[in-house]
Amino acid sequence: MSVDIDVVVVGGGPVGLASAIEARLAGLTVAIIEPRDSTIDKACGEGLMPGALPLLARLGVDPAGMPLRGVSYLSPHRRADHLFRTGAGRGVRRTALHDALLSRAEQLGVERLCSRVETFTQDSAGVTVNGLRAGWLFGADGLHSAVRRIAGLDDPRPAGTRRYGLRQHFAVAPWSDLIEVHWAEHAEVYVTPVAADTVGIAILGPQRTDFAATVRGIPALAERLDGATAASSLRGAGPFRQRALTPSAGRVLLVGDASGYVDAITGEGLRLGLDQARLAVAHVTGGAGYDRAWARSTRDFRRLTSGLVRAATGPLRGVIVPAASALPQVYGAVVERLAR
């Protein structure tokens, strides 16, 4: 059976758009299926690690934002700063990133179909979805991926501790060019400058975490935000911990959060998703097997982040910042490994 299109991407967020751009740059025909026809936002920290920027640049995308020189861990009585050795990252509003990627995808002729995927079928020659026959399907539809579920790739094992995200922006000039991570009693609070007059505050913690109460519980941060006007509505996301049995099944490849995600604690999700988009297209055009390449790409993230999440949700939580302060070389090595 002939195909209508080489690749159909389910999900029109940043990773879905990046996947479509990668495919077009490789000479493939592409369509995106996404039910939302407006700019897509998400509750996230919005800090692009240094390793994400070259991946965007190779797609021809350079979103506006604020330079990020490093990461600072803070507790009431300790702090640990690390400056990136491989160049600055960038704080970018998720909406600005989405619009930049969308503009590039449209420039390259990516077709967009406003629809929701309820089911699909596949055989040895292709995938049929929403009446469209494609050679390959990329599932880039996020944490709660319908593609992962329909393909039978949801991991039924208990996911362990599940945490959730909250995010809101405030109209205040950034006071630092570091990503600040404030370690509160039960949550981490990420402060990311995203414009000359705006900072994003993202909170990662257990379900029903109170945003305002958590910020008030960090006096130094509460003082910075005192009197500041909210520049966006409060958004939530999660649970973040999701697993897939494998990142692919036949001609269906899971990309980004759909392929499994440990936690948002290290800000690595977007860099990994961009890299997986590259790997998925390499697989389609005759490169190495996707599952093995995916495992190599995510290995450090899965190991380091899983360890940090275990510490953050267990009895060692209180020693994370003191240990990072006392062992700057170890702390810096972990940050650098994840930042690349």
Rank of each mutant, 00 (worst) to 15 (best):
R243A: 14
A244S: 14
L245Q: 14
T246C: 07
P247K: 00
P247Y: 06
P247H: 04
S248D: 11
S248E: 15
S248V: 00
A249K: 15
V252S: 09
V252F: 11
L254H: 08
G256D: 04
G256F: 06
G256P: 14
D257G: 03
A258Y: 06
A258R: 02
A258F: 05
A258S: 15
G260C: 09
V262L: 02
D263K: 07
D263W: 07
D263L: 07
A264P: 15
A264V: 03
T266D: 14
G267W: 11
E268K: 07
G269E: 06
G269F: 12
G269C: 05
L270N: 03
L270P: 03
L270D: 07
R271S: 15
L272E: 10
L272D: 08
G273P: 09
G273Q: 04
G273H: 07
L274Q: 02
D275I: 01
D275H: 08
Q276A: 10
A277K: 03
A277M: 01
A277G: 09
R278L: 08
R278T: 13
R278D: 11
L279M: 01
L279Q: 06
A280C: 01
A280Y: 09
A280F: 01
A282G: 04
A282C: 03
H283P: 01
H283S: 10
H283L: 03
H283M: 02
V284M: 05
T285S: 04
T285I: 10
G286P: 00
G286S: 00
A288Q: 09
A288K: 13
G289Y: 12
G289T: 11
G289M: 02
Y290H: 06
R292M: 11
A295D: 14
R296W: 08
R296I: 08
T298G: 00
T298Q: 10
R299G: 04
R299L: 05
R299C: 06
D300F: 07
D300C: 06
F301R: 07
F301L: 08
R302I: 01
R302N: 13
R303H: 15
R303P: 02
L304P: 03
L304S: 09
L304T: 02
T305L: 00
G307F: 00
L308Q: 12
L308Y: 11
V309E: 01
V309K: 09
V309N: 04
R310T: 11
R310A: 15
A311M: 15
A311N: 05
A312D: 12
A312Q: 12
T313P: 01
G314Q: 09
G314W: 08
G314D: 08
L316F: 12
G318H: 05
G318C: 00
V319A: 14
I320M: 10
I320H: 01
P322Q: 10
P322E: 12
A323H: 04
A326R: 13
A326K: 08
L327N: 15
L327Q: 12
P328N: 07
Q329P: 03
V330C: 01
